[in-house]
Amino acid sequence: MRLSKISKQMAELDFSGQCSTGREDELGCLAQNLNSLSASLSTALNDLQTANQQLKTDIEKEQELERQRVDFFSAASHELKTPLTILKGHLAGMLNGVSGYENHIEYMERSLAVVDRMEKLVKELLFVSKTEETQKTEYKTVDFAEILRVQVAAVADLLEEKKQYLEANIPTHLYCVVEQSQMERAIQNILVNAIRYSPSGELIRIALSETHGTIRGEIENTGVRVPDDAIPHLFEAFYRADISRNRNTGGTGLGLYIVHKIMKMHHAKYGISNTSNGVRFWFELPCRQPIDNSI
């Protein structure tokens, strides 16, 4: 190919052409140098295009994360606005002697209940905020079976209050690597969610097992179903399949969202599905053998 044509292509950032290199004079040497320059520039251009594409992807990802953050805090503000409005109405009614607010004890008790709900929500928001921060996380080998047993014991009073029954299949020991406090929080949220959203007298089933190096946990609450179109949204912050669902049960709307965040931290597989007589949450984690430090 002629040197003039190669030069024109290179000026247009087209480095696909190659000069003929059969000559051994100065033109042949120039042709070889142009071929070498063309190859180097082609590699550099490809690297630049790859870097630009990665930068574009990173920017889009950051923009999506920022949109999610804005949506989250917008929803959080909305969730706080309702109880604040109720609380303000109660206080104004009592202070101004509005008809119907004569029984101050009754409305003070209602106001305290509203404050309790707000306190729960603020604590959940703080927890979510901490999970968003870049901080050192301590993963270690723990007995997951024991974690599950402890969390089941912690909700015993709630089970008794709802007059529900427990069916648990938990092995003596089952080890894996997790951030213990975070995973305890996730298991607690799942259990409380299952108990709260099942009617009185129903059965809560819990199972933990290991197959081919993978731990699988299942928590099923009976007597209730979730609309199929709602299932993909259950891990979203403040999502309600039924608009009154969380307020009637005392939930904040962040329980499963926090579970989702913790499971993602552990690169776990997880999900929710309807069963023949209820709703099942499941998760899978890699199994690890305990470290033997004995002498």
Rank of each mutant, 00 (worst) to 15 (best):
S209Y: 04
T82M: 08
E106R: 11
G278M: 05
E60Q: 13
T252P: 06
V155Q: 10
A11M: 07
H212I: 08
N33W: 09
E236L: 11
A268G: 02
L191Y: 00
F15Q: 05
D14P: 07
T211V: 13
Q182I: 03
N96V: 01
E26T: 07
L191T: 03
E64C: 06
A156P: 00
S294N: 09
S99R: 12
Q188A: 11
E124S: 15
K264H: 10
E210V: 12
M108E: 11
Q151W: 02
P290H: 00
M263F: 13
S294H: 09
G217Q: 03
L159K: 05
V224K: 10
R110C: 08
D71R: 14
E220M: 09
K81A: 15
V178H: 03
K136S: 14
T57A: 15
S198T: 08
L55G: 07
G28E: 04
R2G: 14
T222S: 12
N96I: 01
I258H: 00
F283D: 07
F72N: 03
T85L: 10
E109L: 13
Q180I: 10
V115C: 13
S99H: 12
S200E: 15
E24N: 15
Q188E: 12
L55T: 07
L191G: 01
K120G: 01
G89F: 02
